[in-house]
Amino acid sequence: MMGGYGMMGGFGWLGMLTMLLFWIGVIALVVWALSNLFPARQAGAEPDALEILKRRYARGEISREEFMQARDTLQ
């Protein structure tokens, strides 16, 4: 009927284990690729108040006097 090889075509449990490891590797590779393609945002990476103040001054949104006064208030 099956030529003495059984259901797994001669590979038995070793073949099942190899196939399982193969698919685990494929899934892990896909997860790794997707996580690198769409990196998660870091919640704690927001700039502090002084950094925001410096950026506003650099863009020209506030004058030098406003910057100095706000900086002295923050420090």
Rank of each mutant, 00 (worst) to 15 (best):
M1V: 09
M1Y: 15
M1W: 10
G4N: 05
Y5H: 15
Y5N: 07
G6H: 09
G6R: 04
G6T: 10
G6S: 07
M8E: 03
M8D: 03
M8L: 12
G9E: 03
G9C: 06
G9L: 12
F11I: 11
F11Q: 08
W13E: 14
W13Q: 09
L17Y: 06
L17D: 13
L17I: 06
T18K: 04
L21K: 07
L21F: 14
F22I: 11
W23P: 00
W23D: 09
W23T: 13
I24Q: 08
I24D: 00
G25T: 04
I27A: 08
I27V: 15
I27F: 14
A28S: 12
A28E: 08
L29H: 07
L29R: 14
V30K: 15
V30R: 13
V31K: 14
V31I: 15
W32E: 06
W32Y: 10
W32A: 05
A33F: 13
A33T: 15
L34W: 05
L34A: 08
S35A: 05
S35M: 07
N36K: 06
N36A: 02
L37V: 12
F38Y: 10
A40G: 01
A40Q: 00
A40R: 04
R41M: 10
Q42D: 14
A43Q: 10
A43K: 13
G44R: 13
E46V: 09
E46F: 08
E46P: 00
E46T: 14
P47Q: 04
P47D: 10
D48C: 03
D48I: 03
E51Q: 15
E51Y: 13
I52Y: 01
I52K: 08
I52T: 02
L53I: 11
L53C: 09
L53E: 04
R56F: 13
R56G: 02
R56Q: 07
Y57S: 12
Y57V: 00
A58E: 06
R59I: 05
G60S: 01
E61Q: 11
E61A: 05
E61R: 03
I62L: 08
I62G: 00
R64S: 13
E65Q: 08
E66W: 06
E66M: 08
E66H: 08
E66Q: 15
M68D: 07
M68F: 05
Q69V: 02
Q69F: 02
A70G: 00
A70Y: 06
R71C: 01
R71Y: 08
R71Q: 12
R71V: 11
D72H: 07
D72G: 04
L74E: 01
L74Y: 11
Q75V: 15
